[in-house]
Simulated scan of single mutants.
Amino acid sequence: MHLIVLPGDGIGPEITAATVGVLEAVSERFGLGLRLEHDIAGHESLSRHGTTVRPELLERVRAADGLVLGPMSTFEYTDESKGGINPSMFFRKNLDLFANIRPARTYPGVTHHAVSAFDLVVVRENTEGFYADRNMESGGSEMLVTPDVCVSLRRITRPCCERIARAAFRLAMTRRKRVTAVHKANVLKIGDGMFLEECRKVAAEFPEVALDEIIIDAMCAHVVRAPARFDVVVTTNMFGDILSDLTAELSGSIGLGGSVNAGARHAMAQAAHGSAPDIAGQDRANPLSLILSAAQLLDWHADRLGSRAFGEASRAIEAAVADAVAAGESTADVGGRLGTAATGERIAARLRALPALA
């Protein structure tokens, strides 16, 4: 498996280094033959090349099997004409990474903010919705009509609704076989109505999977009150963005939330959090989100190839993270006593100690 690794901005290089150590350890133990190719994007690329993402980098990523993207200071990239391209948006759009898969679960040893332990996954549509940079062939989908009036457009398409619903139901088949479709069809009758229609059509192909439908505002209350009732949650882009941060924080820290952006041919591991420049270089950043995201990338590859080794490797990383957190071998924000580098090293050591895959 050939992976492009882009460390990013702020704490990105630190947590990416920890993640690379984990990937190298799991590759050795499970015989994956991972080939990691390092490059740059973000501020370092802007300084060296005048753009945050070089055009040739996209072709290199397309030729690889996956991408590990460190956190980027996307809020600072405001002018594409001056090279300030949002790398996250750029790869999601150009690689058609339509499914943002965001697990959230509680961990023994971590104080969480939920009323009970839970284990769920938010499956978020990633290519349309209310996001102004993903709705138009050129330009944005926000218009300043007068100095005091802005109109924002939302694009919802039947094919995108169908494929995100299918991704959710396929995932549910590997879990507890329940999908919750989150919507606002009582107000957004056409767009969210279309989303629900496609969820119901796909549900008919998966009779083993139960389908629930919940309005977004009610969902926010239910997931706080009883998160354990949910298994796979599927929704449109902006609702998924909000819900995935909420559920990650309920688990104890957004630093425990993995995230993979997946398409039919490409996938990108990406931490659920930002670049946190205020703690960059201090060996304090939690690397677990990116490590768990890398595990999801291996699992995506396993599903794509039907590979037992990559699937086992993904689960081994997840188990090593859980064991390390329970033992206090993690960063302080999740109750541990180690720095960024040492957290990655302890997880890598746990993986090296595992028996080889038979």
Rank of each mutant, 00 (worst) to 15 (best):
T52R: 09
M173P: 07
C199Q: 10
P7D: 02
E80L: 10
R346M: 09
S141H: 02
V179R: 00
G139S: 06
R102D: 04
P87D: 10
A264C: 11
L97P: 00
V5I: 14
R29M: 05
L357I: 11
N261H: 01
V115P: 03
F239V: 02
A324W: 06
C220R: 15
S116A: 08
R48T: 14
V123E: 00
H273I: 03
A356Y: 15
V53H: 02
V209E: 00
S314R: 04
D133L: 14
K189D: 11
I347F: 08
A114V: 04
R337N: 11
M219E: 03
E213G: 02
E208H: 06
I254K: 03
G10Y: 12
V234P: 04
A226K: 05
R155I: 06
M89C: 10
G274H: 08
G263H: 02
A285E: 05
V20A: 00
S244C: 05
A309S: 06
N237A: 07
L250V: 02
Y131C: 01
E56P: 09
R352V: 08
A332T: 14
N237C: 13
G240K: 07
P55W: 15
T235F: 06
E345H: 12
F195W: 13
I11D: 03
G140P: 09
L290E: 02
V334E: 03
L298C: 12
G66Q: 07
S81N: 13
V232A: 03
I40A: 15
D9A: 13
H43L: 15
K201E: 12
V325R: 00
P87F: 05
A165M: 04
Y131P: 00
G193E: 11
R60Y: 12
L58Q: 04
N135M: 12
F230R: 02
Q270T: 13
E128M: 03
T111P: 05
S259A: 15
L351R: 01
F30H: 09
S251T: 00
L153N: 15
P7G: 02
P13S: 13
F75M: 14
A349G: 13
R176P: 03
V233Q: 12
R284H: 10
T51N: 08
A356P: 14
A64L: 05
W300D: 03
A285M: 06
L171C: 01
F30D: 04
L57Y: 08
T180P: 01
Q282N: 09
E162N: 12
A348E: 06
I279D: 01
V61D: 06
D9C: 05
R225H: 14
R134H: 05
D9G: 07
Y77M: 12
D303K: 11
E37A: 13
P108N: 15
E345G: 13
D79L: 14
V122A: 01
V145D: 04
A117D: 10
G83M: 03
T19N: 07
Y77K: 11
D192I: 13
E137S: 04
C150G: 14
E59M: 13
V26F: 04
E249Q: 15
L288M: 05
R200I: 06
S81T: 09
A341H: 15
G274Q: 08
P227R: 02
R265Y: 04
V115T: 09
S289F: 05
I164E: 02
